[in-house]
Design a protein around this nucleic acid. Sequence first.
DNA 1: TTAGGGTTATGC
DNA 2: GCATAACCCTAA
Length: 489
Amino acid sequence: MLDPRITSWILEFVLRQPAEDWMANELLFALPLPSPLSPRLKKILLLRRLSSDLSRPSLSARTLLSLELIEELERYAGAGAPSNSLAAAYAAVAVECTTRFLRERSDDDHGEDFFDAVNRIWNCRVADLERSEAAGLFSPALREARREMEEAIVNPVVRVGLTGRDTKKAALDAVRVYLEEAEKEMGPPYLEHLAKAVCEEWMSSGTGRDGSVVELYEMLRNLLASQGERGRYEGLPDDNYEDSVLGRDKDAPEQGGCSSDEFVHLPASASEVMKVKNLSQLGVLPANLDNMEENQNQMDLKLVFSVNEGAGKGPNNDDDAIARPNLMNQDPSDLEHVEENRERASLSFVDKGTKDGNPGTTTCVGDKRDCAGAPKPSLMDWNPTARTFEWDEDSIESPSENSPDPSNKLHLPSAKRREISLPLEDNKTFVKRRRKKKWSSLEEETLRKAVERHGVGNWKFIKSCHPEIFKDRTEVDLKDKWRNMIRCI
DNA sequence: TTAGGGTTATGC
DNA sequence: GCATAACCCTAA
């Protein structure tokens, strides 16, 4: 079993090389990693995602999210205000994520997408940012940009001016500047330090070396052991190497609000875990997956920090598409059943995949705003007005009720269902009842604050302001939850 | 779209 | 069996 510390160093090294994204994801998925991830590795993964966005090049709400997460990481590490380059990149990306809808508008689009983006990004996201602990990102440039966007809502001349501006290049440049600065600040990969120490050890130990990978790995283990026995190993980076990247104050207490556990643990669905287990049985993955709880954490961690969902190209990619858990296309709706770890679900790196990378909801300006346009769940998922049956999630519907081979049911069992309401003759109208999902404290707190800010009854607007946090909730869910919450007072 | 009553699941 | 939370249904 590989030492998770060593694999994290290897991962750091690979992520900081110009390796392809699919390879980085493969490694991220395959290697055992320490849990929770170190702040250093988290930051490296976030930087890598920014780098991927640059290389495609595609800036989206996910890019904004990556920048917000970096700020949060640094803030909880006690690093103080975000750097100018980080704030500048954030402002530039926010502008680009908005103005792109002006450039890309179609004939039948009368600017609704742009208005939605202004509301979503500037009236909700940036406004929340200003009031939050992340206010360090709220730079003068961001303030000015918000003023301009608000003006663009009512002034077509400003919109025309924005359309003619190359905000994409400006945003790409700003992100590039930040990445270069962050890379420089981070210093060389830890593995390079280790390699130097290993070389010295190698040179001094004389004969009997064969130079194999196994031997190299053993030497790394020995170095680790000697580090443990003697404290700092001469020639290795000091014990604070991990923290130094983030400027962490050694005396700063661990923060509860964004602990690494909360930050990285996003649950994989049971089905995903089963896929992993199957792969394990096939020998594709290490067979050490019996402890599903523990290994699900590993999966969660990797799903959250996958490098780039749109970059899953690589050898055998097509063959893998069905069989293996796809780190790039994990559906957030699958991420159920682990309430304790949902605190940062809104910070997941897995996008719904709308055209701007934003979750699929739209909002408009003003109180009691018209928020039409939010996509409803597919009828294939559930129908709020249909008579309901409960389905066993683990069961897979048989392709045909008249299957010629009844033995198939052993492998593809018909869905178990139990009548809940009046029976209807046409089974097609029966749609599963959603699985109960306990509200996380993040959802509750967000709802509480939103009601304070926007008032009771604006459920659709509140949902639209926090589409990622409430992505699995309907407006009615928000209303019901609020009803429950005030009952407790 | 929302409010409010009804139903179901879950924990004790 | 009861209390509660989550979810569903439907009238306005």
